[in-house]
């Protein structure tokens, strides 16, 4: 019974969060109970190792990166009213455009879409993902006898494809 109670409090004990009396009882109990003593050692070990592993340093230019991001946020906020103004002026242009002008514009857009469907190669794909190039690179690499396989195959297979 006492062991169970003790075990539940060991975690708080290593954190130094028990009141003096409870702390003393645990300490005394662990002294005479090899099982609790062992558990205490294990918990301390885990805590110590985790601490070592968890502490990381950011990159040396971290503050500069933050500052850059702050600038971007500031610029984005400043741009907003300009974009709104631009949109308004485009709307105004559209309302003032004569009917024939509107029709010509619509025909133009339709023709563009038509060509896009018939001759897609005229319009190169707007964007490609870097991953397909990577796969090709890795394929070339893995044909060599001494590459770091099989790790690369892992990449090949797991690389996300659209």
């Amino acid at each position: 019974m006492k062991c169970r109670w003790s075990k539940e409090n060991l975690s708080a004990y290593i954190d130094g969060e028990l009141n003096i009396i409870t702390g003393w009882i645990i300490k005394r109990h662990a002294k005479f109970c090899p099982e609790c003593q062992k558990e205490l050692n294990e918990l301390q070990k885990i805590s110590k190792l985790s601490k070592l592993l968890l502490i990381k340093e950011p990159e040396f230019d971290f503050y500069e990166q933050v500052r850059e991001k702050l600038q971007q946020v500031k610029i984005a906020q400043q741009e907003k009213p300009e974009i709104a103004a631009e949109r308004k002026s485009i709307e105004r242009m559209w309302t003032f455009l004569p009917q024939s002008g509107k029709a010509a514009l619509l025909v133009g857009v339709a023709a563009l879409l038509f060509f896009l469907v018939i001759y897609p190669q005229i319009f190169p794909a707007p964007s490609l993902s870097i991953e397909q190039f990577e796969e090709e690179y890795l394929r070339s690499r893995e044909t060599l006898p001494w590459v770091e396989s099989p790790a690369l195959s892992a990449t090949l297979m797991s690389a996300e494809r659209g």
Binding site: P124, P126, S127, S129, F133
Partner: peptide, 10 residues
Amino acid sequence: FQRPRVNIMM
């Protein structure tokens, strides 16, 4: 790699 101009996402 080289190909006609395209936007590559990275």
